[in-house]
C-alpha cells in the first residue's frame, strides 16, 4: 500500500488538487441566501436603503429642475435648484457610508453565526480562499440585488411624488429620460447614474465584506468548531 501522504509530501502545487468551481460556489451562495432569507434581507437592507436614497436624490434633483421650469413658466419666478442639488448629493454620499458600515456589521454577524460551518468546511478540505470567495460572492449578490431593488423603489417613489406637482407623466418621464447629472463638469444621463448606483452598491457591499470574510477564513478549524450558537 502506498504512503498516504506520498502525493502530499512529494510534490508541490497541491493547491490545484483542491478546487471549488465558481459554478458550485455560486450555487452554494444562492442556497445560503435563499435558505436564510430573513438574515439575507437584513444584510441587504442597508445597501437597499442607501441606494434607494441615492436614486431618490438624483431623481428629485431632476424633478426639481422640471418643477423650477414649470414655476418659472407659470409664475415668472426664476428658481435655482443647483445649490439644493449639491447639498443633497453630499447627503446621499453620507448615506452610502452609513450603509457600508451597516454591511460590515451584518456580515460580521453572519460570519460569527457560521463559525462552526466554516470550521466544518475546512475539515472537509476547504482552503481559506474558498471561504473568502463564498462570503464575497454572497455579499456581491446581496449588494446587487439590494441596490437594484433600492434604485427601483427610490426612483419610483420620487417619480410618484413629482408627478402630482408638475405636468403629469408625459413631460416628467421625458425629462427624466433625458436629464443628465453634472459630475465633474460632465453630464451623465440619469439612467446611467442608476446603473452606476447598482454597481456601486455591489462594489461597496463586497468591500465591506472583505474584513469579515478574511476573519472567517483565518480562523483555525479547531477554534471555529468550538464556537456554539
Amino acid at each position: 500500500m502506498g504512503s498516504v501522504l506520498e502525493d502530499v509530501a512529494g510534490k508541490r502545487g497541491i493547491e490545484k488538487q483542491i478546487v471549488l468551481p465558481w459554478s458550485k460556489a455560486l450555487q452554494m451562495t444562492r442556497e445560503n441566501i435563499f435558505v436564510r432569507l430573513g438574515r439575507s434581507a437584513i444584510t441587504a437592507s442597508g445597501i437597499f436603503l442607501g441606494i434607494a436614497f441615492l436614486a431618490a436624490v438624483l431623481f428629485s434633483a431632476a424633478g426639481q429642475r422640471v418643477a423650477a421650469a414649470v414655476i418659472e413658466r407659470d409664475f415668472g419666478q426664476a428658481q435655482n435648484p443647483e445649490e439644493f442639488q449639491a447639498r443633497i448629493i453630499w447627503l446621499a454620499a453620507m448615506s452610502l457610508v452609513v450603509a457600508t458600515v451597516g454591511i460590515v456589521n451584518s456580515m460580521l454577524m453572519s460570519v460569527t453565526e457560521r463559525y462552526k460551518e466554516i470550521g466544518t468546511m475546512k475539515c472537509l478540505g476547504a482552503l481559506d480562499t474558498f471561504i473568502v470567495r463564498l462570503f464575497l460572492l454572497e455579499a456581491g449578490l446581496l449588494g446587487i440585488l439590494g441596490s437594484a431593488l433600492g434604485a427601483f423603489v427610490g426612483a419610483g417613489i420620487t417619480m410618484l411624488f413629482f408627478v402630482g406637482r408638475v405636468d403629469g407623466w408625459g413631460g416628467i418621464l421625458e425629462t427624466w429620460a433625458t436629464t443628465a447629472v453634472e459630475i465633474g463638469g460632465t453630464g451623465i444621463p440619469l439612467w446611467l447614474c442608476i446603473i452606476f448606483g447598482v454597481m456601486l452598491g455591489g462594489i461597496l457591499s463586497v468591500l465591506a465584506s472583505l474584513y469579515p470574510a478574511w476573519r472567517a477564513a483565518k480562523m483555525p478549524p479547531a477554534a471555529a468548531l468550538r464556537s456554539e450558537f
Binding site: 501522504l5 506520498e6 502530499v8 509530501a9 483542491i18 478540505g125 476547504a126 482552503l127
Partner: peptide
Amino acid sequence: IDEVDMAQLTASELAFLRC
C-alpha cells in the same frame, strides 16, 4: 501521519490532507 511531520505541511497541503 505516515512518517510525514504535519507541522511541515503548507496550508494547501494540509487542506489536501484533510480533504
